[in-house]
């Protein structure tokens, strides 16, 4: 088997960079760990779940989808092609890799989104099996597991008490990574460490079942009281994919941008005429939960939540979808509508 010394993760990143990959890896940034483009000198951290998710590489927070030039009162549109270089998502968690399924679904269910697919096709996913979890992790409650290889092209498994990783290639793309990183990999034996224990937090089927008739429940008001309507949860979520389209122009030229957007924002559904179907934070928070646990499964036969726990970990107002789902499950058990 191929192994990699734990201290050599950055060397693997460097080797892949030298092989022409854009390497997106968990890099130390101040007190935090961010999934960002590896550059020489950056410290890689495999021990912490990064604050941002892997979706950033496939569905960037701001992407040019159109260009135009102005000539007096007239304009000319300029064709735009996706800028998608060969990319590897190195040491991303199974919950981030799992999120590619709902993203693939929405960007391909009818029209095929050229931008997303260009990034997706150019990307190799090297997952990192989790051997530790924190109190916000809940992958096992939403059909995942800490050592899942779903959507991964290769997987790094911590081994020998964290001293090294076993690199397991699962697809041709994964083989290519092993080949490109050959110089820093060793052929040898290692004992994979046991996966993290992620205790189930709630029964997602019970949440989905309750949500089917739960739209008008008075519970939403209570469950959402702490939410202040920012986009922190949606923007760090590996599956959230709502976006806005905005033009930015000078007098001579401009671009049309696809920017992330979030159902938690008050203006998200507000009509130009003033009517806002989701007029309070309770209805917006309800949309967030219902979309992940009821509407998306109804449409695409999968949950739009992978249990990464970022929303709960990062919310400045103490909201947590994990906690809310547990509360919904309790309500369901108690027969509360």
């Amino acid at each position: 088997m191929k192994t990699l010394e734990a201290t050599k993760l950055a060397d693997l990143a460097a080797a892949l960079t030298a092989a022409g990959y854009r390497v997106i890896a968990p890099c130390q940034r101040g007190d935090q760990v961010h999934l960002e483009c590896y550059q020489a000198g950056k410290t890689l951290r495999a021990d912490v779940i990064p604050v941002n998710s892997a979706k950033d590489a496939l569905f960037p927070r701001s992407e040019v989808i159109g260009r135009y030039r102005f000539e007096g009162n007239e304009f000319e549109t300029v064709p735009v092609a996706p800028q998608a270089g060969k990319t590897v998502l190195l040491a991303v968690r199974p919950c981030d890799a799992a999120a590619l399924a709902p993203l693939d679904a929405v960007f391909n269910w009818d029209y095929k989104d050229e931008f997303y697919n260009a990034h997706r096709d150019a990307t190799t996913v090297v997952a990192l099996a989790c051997t530790a979890a924190d109190d916000q992790c809940f992958c096992t409650s939403v059909g995942g597991s800490p050592d899942s290889t779903a959507n991964a092209d290769a997987v790094l498994r911590p081994a020998d008490g964290g001293k090294r990783f076993i690199l397991e290639s699962l697809t041709d793309k994964g083989q290519a990574i092993a080949a490109a990183g050959q110089a820093v990999l060793t052929e040898g034996q290692a004992q994979a460490d046991p996966p993290a224990q992620v205790a189930p937090a709630f029964d997602s089927a019970a949440v989905t079942a309750w949500a089917k008739d739960g739209f008008d429940s008075p519970l939403w008001k209570e469950l959402s009281l702490a939410c202040m309507g920012c986009g922190a949860c949606a923007y760090t979520c590996p599956t959230c994919h709502c976006f806005d389209i905005q033009d930015e122009a000078t007098r001579r030229e401009g671009v049309r941008l696809r920017n992330w957007d979030a159902c938690g924002f008050g203006l998200f559904t507000k009509h130009a005429g003033g009517h806002n179907p989701r007029h309070d934070q309770a209805s917006r928070w309800r949309q967030r939960v219902m979309h992940k646990f009821a509407y998306f499964p109804e449409r695409f036969e999968m949950l739009a939540c992978t249990g990464c726990g970022r929303c709960g970990r990062l919310c400045g107002n103490g909201m947590s979808i994990r906690e809310v789902c547990s509360q919904i499950e309790q309500a369901a058990q108690a027969g509360v509508k």
Partner: peptide, 18 residues
């Protein structure tokens, strides 16, 4: 007449239920 941005089932703005 929901608010829309993409028109092609991606951006999520016009969702009502599923």
């Amino acid at each position: 007449e929901n608010r829309m941005k993409c028109g092609i089932g991606k951006c999520g703005r016009c969702n009502v239920g599923s």
